[in-house]
């Protein structure tokens, strides 16, 4: 069984990403069970998707310390999800921080840097993704999700290849979004090979 947690901020496209992973797994003949945050939290709140792939799955929610992979769409949200992470498992994180409006009123000066160093100190197997650059190269701010999926596929944790995801994208996304999303997927995958692993 594989467990994956996607965390981010409402509006970042975590729901689509979770659907694509589950669908890709199903297209390979596996069973998938996922659950999403839907409702008020989608308006800029913290959102979490749980994805479970394999047989004999009961709960749609992943137990603590059971995730094989955490994909953080935002540094602080990735930290928030750490209790789910299985020992020595992988965290993929976009380094782009999203600053909550409320921080201006609560006196917090969150900027994401402190979360990134916390992740570096606490996660052995961390992959940092420069989603800003990938978005720029794709000409869209809406491809953070696909670039992170590309990294996940290249990271190989979920037994879903880049090719599997590409096939699923072609099957489920509307025609005019396909090429841009596939581009983001590949740029994500490519960014992982360009990372200096020694820095971890």
């Amino acid at each position: 069984m594989k467990n994956c947690i996607l965390v981010g901020v409402g509006g970042q496209g975590t729901i689509l990403a979770s659907k694509l992973i589950a669908q890709a797994a199903m297209d390979k003949g596996k069973q998938a069970l996922t659950t999403e945050t839907i409702g008020m939290a989608q308006r800029g709140g913290s959102v979490v998707s749980h994805i479970r792939i394999g047989s004999e799955i009961y709960s749609p929610l992943i137990p603590l310390q059971a995730a094989d992979l955490v994909i953080g769409f935002e540094p602080a949200e990735a930290v928030r999800a750490l209790p789910y992470l299985k020992k020595d498992s992988m965290v993929i994180v976009s380094k782009r921080a999203i600053i909550p409006v409320t921080s201006a009123f609560s006196g917090s000066n969150y900027n994401g840097m402190e979360m990134m160093s916390y992740l570096k100190d606490h996660v052995e197997n961390l992959i940092v993704v420069d989603t800003d650059t990938i978005c720029r190269l794709c000409g869209s701010n809406k491809v953070v999700n696909l670039s992170l999926l590309g990294v996940a596929a290249a990271g190989g944790v979920l037994d879903i290849s880049l090719n599997d995801l590409e096939n699923t994208i072609r099957k489920v996304l509307p025609e005019h979004y396909i090429e841009m999303n596939i581009k983001a997927l590949h740029l994500g995958a490519k960014s992982i090979t360009e990372q200096t692993w020694a820095t971890h």
């Binding site: 750490l82 909550p100 409006v101 409320t102």
Partner: peptide
Amino acid sequence: QSETKEISITLPDRDPVLC
């Protein structure tokens, strides 16, 4: 299983907001 480790850093509150 081992006790879950507490997160030892203050996380920003992220309440939903008007778009």
